[in-house]
Write a protein that binds this DNA or RNA. Sequence first.
DNA 1: GTCGAGGTGA
Length: 831
Amino acid sequence: MLLCTVPTANYSNRICKIVRFFVSFSSSCALRTIDFVEESSTHDCDYIKLQRRTQNYATSGHFRKALETLSSMRNAPGKPTVYDYNSLMYCYLRSRNVLLEELVEVYLGMKRFGPAPNALTFNVLLNGMLSLGNLKDMFFVANEMCGSGFVPSFTMLLKVLKKSLELGSLDCSLGVFRLMLRLEYFPTEPVLNLLISLLTKARMIREAYSVLSALLGKGYFCSVYSYNLILWALCKSGQSYAALELFCLMKKKGIVQNVCTYTALVYGFGREGLGVDLFRCLNIMQSDGFKPNLRTYTIIIKFLCDAGRVEEALEYLDRMEREGCDPDLITYNIILRELCHQDKVGKICELVQVIDQRGFSPNPYTYAALAGGMLKVGKIGMAHKILLDVIARGCTLDVAVYNIYFNCLCCDYRSREALSLLKSMMEDGFTPSIVCYNTILKGFCRENSIEEALELMDSFEWENKGPDVVSFNTILSAACKQGNSSLIQRILFRMEHEGVELNVVSSTCLIQYFCTVGKFSECLKLMEYMMRNGPTPTTIALNMLLDKLCKSGLLRSAHGIFEYLRNTACVPDTTSYNILIRAFRREGALVGREAINCSPAEGSDAREWAYSKYCNLQYPIEGNVPERIVELATPTSSEFPEKNKPLISMHEFFGQKWRALYQPPNKEIAAQLYVQNIMSSLAIPGFQTVDIGDIVTTTAIIIFSYLASFKLGRLMSLYPGNSWSQLRIMVYVCIPAWQVDAPRSTILMIRNAKSSVPFGICVSPLPNSWIEFAVEYLIVDMIIIQDCSPCAVSWLIAVCLFCCSCSGSPYAELLRHAWGEPLSIMASACS
DNA sequence: GTCGAGGTGA
């Protein structure tokens, strides 16, 4: 609904003053009535003189004198006329020192005692107020004009609307807009767009939309630009599905959409992590005949990077260039940031070179991407070095870059140094942001100086923006981790006192506190309260609770709560499964061959399926799901029944060597070094790296060879039946989309082999613990690999290939073809 | 004309 406060600034006072003026004015006129007849012959001549004198006084800004002169016209009958008043106002408005209040007083006096204001009166006043920029009075006069039966012109109201937009008054702008609409005046498109734009920037999207729909209701045609403004606002505020509805409405209304329209949706879906919708929208955009532009591509790249799919992002970068849509520094900065997050040193160097070759100079965002990204993966020293270097070189930096620098110091347990640096920078004119203060608070908390952090919070010059909920949560979190209840109470009291409301992060901290001190019942009460009244607990809170319950030996309770919550808004993620599966394993709950002797149904979630195998076999939840999660708080006494030991533990055999094999080469560079090490230590004659793909393939070959050279005999002796043909390994290889393309040959091969060798491929993220599980119980029928580590994927593929080829399987030929030379090395090792 | 990037809390 459009709202507008009608400016009624204390007019009663003014009316009192003006009444006094008009009363004395009238009585002085009455006293002189006797003289009227004698003086009438001279009146015409005097009147013209008085008119001129009034105008002169008014023009030179002597308002009171002008008004007195005007009042002396009363000697002439019917004078002063409304035109005299208008003339006075007009001239006074041309003077330099105008007090609008005086004009309003005169207007109110005219209204009350006459002569009645006419259309010109209002126009004179409006024009004057427009040039002086007094919105309150301007809106008042416009309303008065309508109320007096005059119609302000379209031009006049448009000017008023423009002025109020220029001055940023949304209330007034909306008021004028409504007034215009009442008079069937439609603002011009630029003015309308300015109004919508200002409203959306003030997060008044609903109001912006009501402006649009009010116009549509009057049959006005709104252009695609107006729609796009609202579409973008919806997408930027996490309402992409609402944006989609608007998008459909546009189509229905026959609005010709443009690239910017589609790009808004692409942005919205990407921002909310809705990849399927994003790419669907991209396809629709292209089939509708629109080519993605620089911004569209940048948004897609940002989405991919945020999802860790940097290889795909790089493919889009290539695609842009192929299509003649050159990336700019924004595009590069986005990729650079993600490459840093993934610690891909080689690619970072390459990209930095490309940026340089394209003639771009690094900007503060570039430095933030590099240093911030490195800091996030724990390379504090490197981040610190980069920033020291750019500071020393006098590069233009901004507050965000300095915040990363402060964070570097704090992560290095140098919070005090960060604080004193901040103080000295402030003396030199640096204006810190709220993030800066919060970073330093976090540093102090990290160094266990929570009390000091609280004192600091008081001493910071927050201006009027803080401390905010993040500041409080920073300290609250530290207090909760310590289990310091009195400190927690103090913080909560402060928050209440300062009007800072608890949010979902604050509540999660409290959940952590209850878990830390073992008050599970309190914790569950809080969770339940949050589920009923909000904010809904997040997966992080769920995981925290599960972890603490499991670590306290309350696996059955954890399992029950998990089952209960998974059907609510609190959705479990990979970590949730990890926690439970680890706990099951710790408690001796074995998943052996018999546990997983079937495959997940076509199209089902392998993670869910495997989890259910664990749970149903080992800890079935009996009875109905309780009504309230608090009922799950008390664990039963027989939580962990004894379970069988694994028939064969490959863990005993593979031991630490296998762990070492799969753990270090998580990162590409480490993997390369690792490969070189193994190659030199193996010293297999005639061994060559086969360049059929990427590091994944190469690493797989190396490990493959390693297994062939050193482990075969022992493996065979340990395996029951001593026959490779009996070895059945079912592999659910989880390969995220970015890897599917890389080792294409490998995937293809496994797919071909799938019909008779028990391989399976599942493309969906899976928990890390399952890799560990696979390492420990390699003989069981399932190996599931998580998404990220190329090396982990490759060695399991390698193991499988190795086993298959050794058994003299009909696929040996296929494998030999695909793997070439190393396979023959392996074959000779076998013999 | 409308549109894309970095830094703080669980």
